[in-house]
Every structure is written in C-alpha cells, then in structure tokens.
Computed example of a mutant assay.
Amino acid sequence: MPVNQNDPRVKRTRQLLIQSFMELLEHKKNIYSISVQDITDRATVNRATFYAHFEDKYAFLECWMKEKFQRKLAETLPNSSISNMSSLRTLILTIFEFLALTRQYMIRTPENSQYEPLFEIAMQKELYQLLLKWLIEESNGSVSRELVESTALVISWGILGTAVQWSRNPQNRRAEDMVRDVLVIVAAGLAPVMA
C-alpha cells in the first residue's frame, strides 16, 4: 500500500531516515558502505518501515540527493528564481560547489559507480525544472513551448555534465574559471529563447 507523502507522520519518518543516514555518513564518509540495516538501526525503525517509504536503497539515495540539492539551491537562490545572468552564474557556481562537496562521499570504484548516474539524473531533473520555470517567465510566450523545453533540457545537461566532469578532477582548474566559461556558453544557448 503506497504511503501518503503529505501525511506529517510520513514526512517525519522520511526525515528521520535521512537524518540517520546523514549521521552515519559523517562517521563512515562513504555512502556506499552504509546499508539499509545501518540506516534503520540508527533511526530505530524496522526494515519494513524503510521499505514502506522507499522502494530500495537506490530510491532512498535519489531522494536524499534531491533534498540535499534542493536545500543548497534554496540557500543560494532564496526565492528559487533566476532573474538575470548574475543569478544564473550563482546557480552554475552552486552546482560546481555542490558536486565538489558531495564527491568526497562518493569514492569511485567499479562496485559503487552505479549510483553516480542516479545522482546526476536527480540533480538534472531539479535543474531542468528551475531553468524551465525561469525560461517560461522570461520568454513571455514569444517562442514556442517546445523550444523553451528543449533549451532548458540542453542547458541543464550542459551545466551538470560540465560540473560532473570538473568534480572528478577539480585540481585541474578552479571552479570560478570553469563557471565563467560555462556561463558564456550557456548565455549563447539561451539567446534564442531570451531574445
């Protein structure tokens, strides 16, 4: 039986599970070494409760990454909007910094590399929704909805893909330098929708 996501008890339990995971993460420093049993033991709930809220560990980790990313965006873009190139630059820098920060918990080995695409897709969905909302507001119906959606899709993957590649080897180039270059390219990609 599916749980009601709006039920306060459901929200509290999900938050308890996520908080327990975060506490474990502080000790173990590696998301892959934390099991569902570790999370439920720390949260003092049974495994059935975990599986009532999440299909599996993948779904849990996707939810965790999505919430963590949403919180970071809310901190740096308090009104959850992009109003100009300055706020777009802030958004891009936030993504680079977020990936650099979370990369420390993702020790890349063949066994755990299966989680990376999951995290990337969760972040891309959030980024796409934010860009789509902004572009719809900025275009004022002057271009087709399809072009706006395609632009948001391409730009979201472009920003995220660049940030992911950079986060794998951040010592090669400063984030600020990468962000400056990405912003130039993103601005050019936005031109047909923003004109």
Rank of each mutant, 00 (worst) to 15 (best):
M1H: 08
S139W: 07
Y115G: 01
M194K: 02
E75S: 08
E176L: 00
V179H: 13
A48P: 11
L25W: 15
L130G: 08
R9Y: 12
S144C: 04
R42H: 15
I82H: 07
S80C: 04
I155K: 01
E97S: 10
M194S: 06
C63I: 10
L17G: 01
E149M: 06
A191Y: 07
E146G: 01
D177W: 06
P78T: 03
K57V: 00
L16Y: 14
I95Q: 02
Q104N: 09
V154H: 14
T151Y: 11
S81A: 15
S142V: 01
P192L: 04
R173C: 09
A122S: 07
S156G: 12
S150E: 12
S167D: 09
T162Y: 13
I159F: 12
T102G: 03
T102N: 03
N46A: 02
P2C: 14
S86E: 12
D41G: 05
R103S: 13
S156R: 04
A188Y: 06
L153Q: 14
S81K: 07
V182I: 07
W157F: 12
P117T: 09
I155Y: 14
A187W: 13
F98D: 07
V184I: 03
V3W: 04
R12N: 02
G161T: 04
T49W: 02
T40A: 11
N112K: 01
F96E: 08
I31Q: 14
L132T: 11
V164S: 05
R47Y: 12
E67F: 07
E111M: 05
S142Y: 04
I136Q: 11
R42I: 01
M123L: 06
I34M: 07
Q129W: 13
L61H: 10
V184A: 06
Y58L: 00
L99F: 09
S35T: 07
S139T: 13
L127S: 04
F96M: 01
T76P: 00
I155C: 03
P110C: 05
A163V: 00
I18A: 06
R12Y: 12
E138Q: 03
F98E: 13
L73N: 06
W64S: 09
S144L: 03
N4H: 06
A195V: 05
R12F: 14
G141M: 11
Q15D: 14
R89S: 14
I95L: 05
V164I: 14
V45W: 08
R145S: 07
K66P: 00
I185F: 15
L93Q: 15
L147S: 04
V3T: 08
L160K: 10
